[in-house]
Design a protein around this nucleic acid. Structure first.
Length: 362
RNA sequence: UGUCUGGUUGACCCU
């Protein structure tokens, strides 16, 4: 069975959930022998990643019929799948009905409450845990931070007998989410002083704080750390650096990173486009936009809102129509810019048309 | 060969 499972995993990793289901059906036709306790966690994981609740429910059904519903790995994946699909009640049913639970089961269930933002349940559940662990505590820190309860988050952090890099990063993010970027940076430097190891995630997070503070000097310093630690080729770090430099007034540094970068992704392109637009470099932005291998709604919105910011309202409307023509669905951000363009141009008929569009599309 | 926690891009608002 492990050959089949390996193929299944390859499909799931490649975000090809339909193919994984198809392969699973072939496995069924092959007489079940290739289906084992490794098979379902992979399938369920695929449903989680693609938020396919209906696929997940179907797979859950098979799990029961095939008698794998006592496998703790299967159970944990089911809990996770129902949680990320927003069916926390079903996750809890799996949890409560499972003959066997381990600390991952508890962590997964807790993570469900955290995703949901359910402080009460999460706190209750956390106190009910047979044995707390770093991952559970880290989840709680995130939840408290997201809910604006910074002092509670900090207290929990301080009370942890063991902390890891994620605990520190989670607390740094808490400060950032509550717009306390200075404190976030301080915490990063404390983290370094305490000799805690760092990874690319920490740096991305810290660079984000620099961007908000418009702190070129610290941003540059962090960039030097990034190089010293050998993380400079990570796409997400390049994206964070491009964003930081553009926010902090050095669009040329951003451009240099973009031009020298390899393995760039959509976010890189989008960041560079909005960087150019923020500096009024419309032609450069448009060149990039037109040469993008693929665009998403953020690419379009960056251009459209950029035009609106620069008072180029007819360009705003023109690009919006182009967007619709290409079958890209605008979101709220896009529409805000378009509405303001209509208002500025006193384009009453366009405005009416847009109003009808918004009514029709919710 | 399988499961749980932290991070990056667009308008407005907030700061």
């Amino acid at each position: 069975g492990f050959i089949w499972n390996t193929m299944l995993k390859a499909f799931v990793r490649g975000n090809r959930v339909q193919d994984s289901i198809f392969l699973y059906k072939l496995m069924l036709e092959n007489g079940f022998v290739c289906i084992d306790n490794y098979t379902y966690p992979i399938l369920i994981q695929g449903c989680s990643l693609s938020l396919s609740e209906f696929g997940g429910i179907e797979v859950h059904d098979h799990v029961v019929k095939m008698g794998f519903d006592g496998d703790v790995y299967v159970v944990n994946n089911l809990i996770n799948m129902y949680s990320v699909c927003g069916h926390i009640g079903d996750a809890r049913k799996v949890f409560d009905g499972s003959p066997r639970l381990d600390f991952v089961s508890w962590n997964s269930m807790l993570a469900g409450y955290v995703t949901e933002g359910n402080i009460e349940e999460a706190k209750l559940f956390y106190t009910q845990m047979p044995k707390r662990n770093i991952i559970a505590s880290n989840s709680m820190i995130v939840l408290l931070g997201r809910s604006g309860r910074l002092s509670e988050a900090h207290q929990l952090f301080k009370d942890m007998v063991e902390k890891d890099m994620v605990s520190w990063t989670a607390l740094i993010s808490c400060y950032e989410q509550n717009l306390m970027y200075k404190e976030a940076l301080d915490l990063f430097f404390t983290m370094r002083q305490n000799g805690i190891s760092v990874d690319e995630v920490v740096f991305v997070s810290v660079l984000s704080a620099c961007s908000y503070l418009l702190s070129f000097k610290i941003g540059e310093l962090v960039h030097s750390f990034v190089i010293r630690f050998g993380f400079e080729s990570y796409v997400n770090l390049q994206n964070a650096l491009i964003h930081m430099y553009s926010r902090c007034g050095d669009v040329l540094a951003a451009q240099k990173l973009f031009n020298n970068g390899c393995f760039l992704d959509l976010i890189t392109w989008n960041s560079m486009i909005s960087a150019y637009m923020n500096y009024g470099l419309v032609v450069k932005a448009r060149e990039l936009f037109d040469s993008m291998p693929e665009k998403d709604v953020v690419s379009w919105s960056s251009m459209i809102s950029g035009y609106a910011q620069l008072n180029k309202f007819s360009e705003t409307l023109a690009l919006f129509h182009e967007m619709l023509h290409q079958g890209v669905k605008p979101d709220e951000t896009t529409l805000v810019s378009v509405v303001s363009a209509c208002a500025q141009l006193a384009a009453l008929d366009q405005g009416k048309w847009l109003d009808a569009y918004i009514q029709k599309n919710g």
